[in-house]
Amino acid sequence: MPQHVHGVISRAKDAPVELTTIVVPDPGPGEAVVKIQACGVCQTDHHYVAGGVGDDFPYLLGHEAAGVVEAVGPGVTEVAPGDYVVLNWRAVCGQCRACAKGKPWYCFNTHNATQKMTLLDGTELSPALGIGAFAEKTLVAAGQCTKVDPAVPPQVAGLVGCGVMAGIGAAINTGEVTRGESVAVIGCGGVGDAAIAGAALAGATTVIAVDVEDRKLEWAKKFGATHTINSRETDPVARIRELTGGFGADLVIDAAGLAQTYRQAFEARDLAGRVVLVGVPAPGTEITLPLDEVFGRGGSLKSAWYGDCLPSRDFPMLVDLYLQGRLNLDDFVSETVGLGDVEEAFAKMLRGDVLRSVVVLADA
């Protein structure tokens, strides 16, 4: 029968978030109910609050989560009750033209649960990124559940489900970093620091962190940055070229998503170098680039969609790297908070006081 649990919702644009009771239905065909143990507070959740994603209020917030499968619906074979999972927001269909080409990480028909979670009065909720994990339990498509080793603590496992995967994937999957290359990352929040960690994992020997805050640059060193640039004080393009023999970086990752930072990334790459955009631009952001330079520099300009990841392949890999001591996930967690602390966590995030706040459920 349907369950009543606590969850954090956004009722209207820019309104304070609210901890309230939500109704989670029994899982139908292809669905699963997951008991949430931890969920990261991500910038994307605040985009929903600010109306930057749409106006399908009320939203059930939270998406960067780990937990345990409680129940599954008919026909589910991917997971079973008791499985420890990280939730993903790209449950691949296996049938669209991207999947048919053998590139399921580009799946154009990803899916979510068919049924809706609701408020007590029957108002339907829109779960953030099809997940809605600032809640004691949530309903998702079974394909959104990725089994991982239960030895990894939920407060770090959940981060693999969004920000960490987006950043590491931008470096390794989209940017295709190889041994001995130089990489510059502009914007050193959670996604940018994950991109730095990914570049270091892949064997980059020069990893340059660029940000406007010294505190964030210090954080970046923990994840593998070999050099830092405060772009308020130093021209980042000139300095990146100086650090790379005058040529520019093999790969520049824009984790800020601003017109200014993208232009810097474009100008700071070497001939035949790559630019990867992983920071999410504000709607309507425009940029003008000299077409002769686009041609003359060669290389590639790419966007990273969720780090071009395949959750079933990449999530367990990142968890294994963490358990082997090769991937620093612990330092992404600045603090752990409760469900009732999400509004304050958003404020800290917007001020840049934290790398990641993580909501940990009381009985996790």
Rank of each mutant, 00 (worst) to 15 (best):
H63Q: 05
R274H: 12
G296V: 02
Y59T: 13
E18T: 14
F108L: 15
Y59P: 12
T206R: 12
R263H: 06
E267A: 00
A66C: 06
H63C: 12
T77V: 09
A347S: 05
A166S: 15
G102H: 02
I186R: 07
G52M: 02
R241E: 01
P154K: 10
K116S: 11
I186W: 00
M1F: 10
E267D: 14
E233D: 15
E286Y: 13
Y306N: 13
G273W: 00
I172A: 08
V76P: 11
F346I: 07
G190C: 13
G198W: 12
L289K: 00
L329D: 01
V85T: 04
G175E: 12
D55T: 11
I229S: 04
P154H: 14
R97T: 12
G67W: 04
I172G: 05
I9W: 08
T261Q: 09
Q3H: 13
V164Q: 09
K216S: 11
V156Q: 02
A204P: 07
G28A: 04
L323G: 15
G224P: 00
A282Q: 13
Q260I: 08
D331K: 13
V354L: 14
L350H: 14
D314I: 01
P283V: 11
L159N: 05
I168S: 09
P236A: 02
G190E: 09
T44D: 02
P16W: 12
